[in-house]
Amino acid sequence: MLEVRDLSVKYGHFMALRGVNLTVQPGEIVVLLGANGAGKSTLFRTLSGLQRSSGGSATWNGTALTTGRPEFNVAHGVAQCPEGRLLFPDLSVEKNLRLGAFVHRRDASGTARELERIYELFPALVEKRGAPAGSLSGGQQQMVAIARALMARPQLLLLDEPSLGLAPLVVEQVFQAVQRVNNDGVSVLLAEQNAFAALGIAHRGYVLEGGQITLDGPQQALMTDDRVRSAYLGV
């Protein structure tokens, strides 16, 4: 279980997160809604060990994630598909995926098995496996980014705005893939501005505003909440 308690993060004097509380239970998909600059990526980067926290705690099954050492967090089952994807554009799709399994580098057979599973999950990537990742379409690159995170065999998958810049049909495909991953037992924390699609697959959700959680609840409650409807569903 992911447990975030009173988490604060500062950039210099600017407080990007102010005492955030949030949990993700095993097997859940939890959506984190928030406008531009709300602090979603800051939270995700902190959970990945890429950003230092200035207060509070974040633990995964009791293990502290506020280490400042991303390799530790990945090795302990928390992998992220980041905003902007951060792929290795000149390396082949398959090499990108293999690097996703870097923390399992001593387990070649496990990585080979995972690679096969990934190609079943994203059949479109099979014929692109030798192509440079940067040559793929936006949707395909998003698939590679998710697949690369999955190659770490995470128990918790952090997805930072995977629908950004994608056509509605492609967004649907991406979210279907997320749901299948979740069905295999991976917990998912999903940051989105595209609230409609995200709430469609989520069990629960939080709303982050100005670095603070202002609202949380189960999927249905958020779907029908007036504030969510006007701010994130555009109705």
Partner: peptide, 23 residues
């Protein structure tokens, strides 16, 4: 080699390299 790939990966996207757990 995978170690060699980490050098290319880091030069193409440093943040991405950290994200996957490359030291």
């Amino acid at each position: 080699t995978l170690t060699g790939a980490t050098i290319e990966a880091m030069s193409q996207n440093r943040e991405g390299a950290r994200m996957v757990g490359i030291n």
